[in-house]
Design a protein around this nucleic acid. Structure first.
Lengths: 338, 338
DNA sequence: TTGTATGCGTTATCAT
DNA sequence: ATGATAACGCATACAA
């Protein structure tokens, strides 16, 4: 149960601890002969470097911490994929912490990672306060994904959510809809921009009167409840733009439960273009976010601060796109008359 | 950027480093007066304990590592929920590593956690070789979730998958089906037990002739492809029992794409009862696995080894149950004639 | 209750 | 190319 140390490897190989250290770090100036001695001794003993000691001494951990907030949303899984590919290529470890949808949980994870002295921090879908994030960014390079709040202290990577919302609204307008409602993401990351983009687009085309927003929370059940409220309002919408795919599924459920046929009686457009939306069964019209690229760019931001010592904040924005599927269609005359 | 240490806190508070250490660990025998001195000094300096140094010195990390293999499957997210609740209550940190569906990735994550000297390891949905796992279990307490392989070296927590498969088959039999096919999980965790349970149940009721298995891999696309193959066989099944929900969605997609109406022409039963299956839109008949309990029990196993020093392996099994929804129904006469 | 001293397993500097 | 040795930041036995 007690693991061998460099000391024991050194003794067995008949060399100094320093040399073992050099071999472990694959230093160039070690004779092949002694290197082999050390490698063999280590293998025989089952030596495994103690990363705690190594990181303590070297003052680097070669690890970046990712604070996630919703393990249930495939959107985040896909961001991690991109992030991890990039980190792997650069030889960095990725550790994931679960913020569990709560500010407290998120702060706790943040603190844990800071105590671990990670080299960098990635916050994805964070709802922590700006001051919390900035405080952490003071300590270590930090990038927030999907958060539009701009700060001079940390980097951000996100989709142009206002544009995304506009694409959704314009798609529905083109299909003849006017009573287009929105289920938002509450105080979640990116929710505000999508909500504002929706309102702005509606206003631009002279449909400010039809602006109708129900509060959601980016969860499936949140979408369900919001749809229930929306469909019981005096002015029933003919289309709903939902702030993310997960909520859109909930909204879809409620709409069908209430007897609406999608897309005949009701069009629904989601946001994210997760694997969920792509399933043939759902076939959800949605706004694509380039998820892997978001992850990749996040790591790139970190790397720039780590390697090049960049300190000025960089805010990267990627473009969303419309993905037409089966949950949106032309407005129906029966609906028009409702 | 360079963080304060205990030394500086001690100087500022006018006490010894040891006393600062005591205060940080909330030791009982410290005078209120000095405690306050230390607490204030720490706050003023923005002191944050260095977990690397702490863990190195104390030889405990208070952290357990979880190796996940599929971030995209909500099934795992729900296990983590249960695990994390239990760990929180016991004051343990949880760090997650992504094995990324590959043996190599999983081994790498395992190694990373071992180098971090985590107090315990949880493998969920692992496909690593028995020897790899046993080697790790030699070093630190380890529990595998969803892996039926029994070993004397590590604990396991899993659902009785043979029973689960039987429940699925019996449900379909009761609906009048006889040509019941199975899409398996390939070499994935739990796949074998479900496949064997399926075959055994079919045999028991004298339907060994109708045993028909297509290879999947627990992924959505895997389910899609397997269904495509199944539906093109000479004997087209009237029902499919799929090894997990995610694959069942893929199978459902393919069935509908091929013109089958579910459940009229084709019944589909999944496995896991993830949030996915529960959506009104899918409403997938499935076998429930008590996911949070799996997570809770996993942590409990670890805790027993950690606290009580248990060393004998314990294998916990929980019972699955059938959840009837809308993707399964009585066999249709037209189908019978096919 | 508080302080002193040693060790945890590395890295890294400086000799040789 | 290799070895001694001083950090790294903290915990902990022991002393006071």
């Amino acid at each position: 149960m007690t693991q061998p140390t460099m000391r024991q490897v050194a003794e067995r190989a008949g060399v100094s601890i320093a040399l073992v250290s050099l071999v472990m770090r694959e230093a160039p100036n070690v004779s092949d002969y002694r290197r082999q001695l050390v490698v063999d001794a280590a293998a025989e003993l089952g030596y495994r470097p103690n990363v705690l000691a190594r990181n303590l001494a070297s003052r680097r951990t070669n690890t970046i911490g990712v604070v996630l907030n919703d393990l249930h949303n495939p959107f985040f899984a896909e961001i991690i994929d991109g992030l991890q590919n990039a980190a792997d290529a650069a030889g960095h470890q990725v550790l994931i912490g679960n913020g569990r949808h709560s500010k407290a949980g998120e702060s706790e994870m943040l603190e844990t990672f800071l105590q671990f002295r990670v080299d960098g921090l990635v916050l994805v879908g964070s709802t922590a306060s700006l001051s919390t994030i900035e405080a952490a960014a003071q300590i270590t390079p930090l990038v927030a994904v999907g958060r539009t709040t701009r700060s001079k202290k940390f980097d951000t990577v996100n989709t142009d959510d206002k544009l995304g919302a506009r694409l959704a609204v314009e798609h529905l307008l083109a299909l003849g809809h006017s009573r287009i409602a929105h289920i938002d993401g509450g105080s979640g990351a990116g929710a505000r921009a999508r909500r504002e983009g929706y309102a702005a687009s509606m206003t631009t085309v002279g449909m400010a009167d039809h602006i109708s927003v129900a509060r959601g929370d980016f969860s499936e059940i949140g979408g369900y409840k919001a749809a229930r409220e929306l469909l019981s309002r005096r002015q029933v919408p003919t289309a709903i733009f939902v702030a993310n795919d997960l909520s859109a599924v909930g909204a879809l459920d409620r709409a069908e439960e209430a007897g609406f046929c999608v897309p005949t009686d009701m069009s629904i457009v989601g946001y994210d273009n997760t694997s969920l939306a792509a399933t043939h069964h759902l076939s959800l019209t949605t706004i694509n976010q380039p998820r892997e690229e978001l992850g990749r760019l996040a790591f790139q931001s970190l790397l720039e601060r780590l390697k090049s010592g960049r300190t000025a904040a960089v805010h990267r924005v990627v473009a969303p796109s419309l993905v037409k599927r089966r949950t949106s269609g032309p407005v129906h005359s029966r609906e028009q008359a409702r």
